[in-house]
Write a protein that binds this DNA or RNA. Sequence first.
DNA 1: TCGGGCAAAAATGTATACATTTTTGTTTGA
DNA 2: TCAAACAAAAATGTATACATTTTTGCCCGA
Lengths: 263, 263
Amino acid sequence: MARPCGLVYISGWIPHVSPMFSSPPRPPASPPTRSESVIETLRSAILGGEFAPGERLHEVKLTARLGVSRTPVRSALQKLASEGLLDYAPNRGYAMRDFPVDEIISAYEVRAVLEGLAARLATERGLTAVHRALLERALADGDQLLAGGALSPVDRGVYRDVNSTIHETIHAAAGSRMLADMVRLCQHVPVSSPRNVVAFEVRDVRRRHDDHHRIVEAILSRESWRAEMLMRDHVASVKTSLIRSLTGSSTAEAAPVDGRASV
Amino acid sequence: MARPCGLVYISGWIPHVSPMFSSPPRPPASPPTRSESVIETLRSAILGGEFAPGERLHEVKLTARLGVSRTPVRSALQKLASEGLLDYAPNRGYAMRDFPVDEIISAYEVRAVLEGLAARLATERGLTAVHRALLERALADGDQLLAGGALSPVDRGVYRDVNSTIHETIHAAAGSRMLADMVRLCQHVPVSSPRNVVAFEVRDVRRRHDDHHRIVEAILSRESWRAEMLMRDHVASVKTSLIRSLTGSSTAEAAPVDGRASV
DNA sequence: TCGGGCAAAAATGTATACATTTTTGTTTGA
DNA sequence: TCAAACAAAAATGTATACATTTTTGCCCGA
């Protein structure tokens, strides 16, 4: 009954004209197709935990719920299955995957080694002036945010952008589309239960921003091995926080683990 | 014009009942759907280099060529795009991706860190009796094959199976579906040119089999860091061979780099 | 000759009818 | 009562017609 499964890789258009820096990925100018809309709607529902593990997603029922025909629904389901959110079997349809804690922790392990590789590759290839400027700007922004004593909710949102800029710039500098896309996949693992939240105190944010400084410093001084190891540990530390929050509970402010947390 | 792209993850059915060891992944009992057949046909054509980089794959033309309607063709194109073989843009269709040498080399870098992680996780989790038996059997088979002086073409095929068993058993022991599937993706990078062949002398095979011995030894003795590093270098050595065969040419017997070479 | 604009052609997106498979529920027999 | 068998229902796979978008090629004017 078990079916072979495979990690797959969805591509954009014109990979050669690699956008220097693709954040934020702007939506297409033309109005989105129904398939695209359905993908977004369903992805949000899935990541939001609206489907129980193992629950089947029937095409016709979704058709009624979403107000489109089976064609875009099928297309969306196939895409979401290819992202690893759904299971699929021929003639049997799609079902919500289960994401046990083990798998979520593994995703962080995978992301840690991948981002570590990105840091190393970026170091070996060297930063362009643009990438360097982006990193230095983001580091300075982070310094300014963290100069005060506490972080407001708005500040946390801003810092999330700073964090994204740093990581995505390094991915871009690494120059591997496969690598960047695999990292993105690691960040799209749905929360399996409401208990999967990570405690982020201001102290933790400071520590992570200091990590960023050291990582960029290592990249700029061409210490590829150091850059890789620093980045690996930087990402892996989230795994530690996750495990800590799953076993003992912390009183710190909690943020959902949905890939948007500042790591 | 550039479109956001994403790595995606295609799933099998019933992930919980993780098959102890999924090689060879047996085909479904029921006859394959037209979509599945078209996927296989097109994937072979793509990996075989039948499409030039940038060449568009029109649905209707493929319809005529494959003798099915647009529906399974569309389904197959979407799947292949999700595997990273094709580019896609809404309202513009699918086109063959370009795989520059840089990207192929990066794929080996990615695979090296991923397989290294798999070795570490397998070490940390520990091997089951079944996994251990499979590894020891494969190692013994390899020893026997390499006892003689030379390797016949048949022997090379057998050794490829031995090699696959070792690597896939370690992936299974690592216990992460995402990790195993990402490794599989790394092995599905098409050859970009006929020059992308790697020289495999008997000496190289011996060396790699010795790597396998050391890796399993490290896993069994719970030396996770050593297992990770040995596996990383084991896989990365193929990258070295690839670069060597791209720059200078070797006179050794050459095998295409299609993921089936023994690594 | 070049470039913009328009219309025809072609390609992709969508809806839907039909085919095949799976699932479900009942019946029937032991 | 249980289980195998069968038929009805439902779900997915496929083909195709139509809608919308993109592409192509021509015309026209500067």
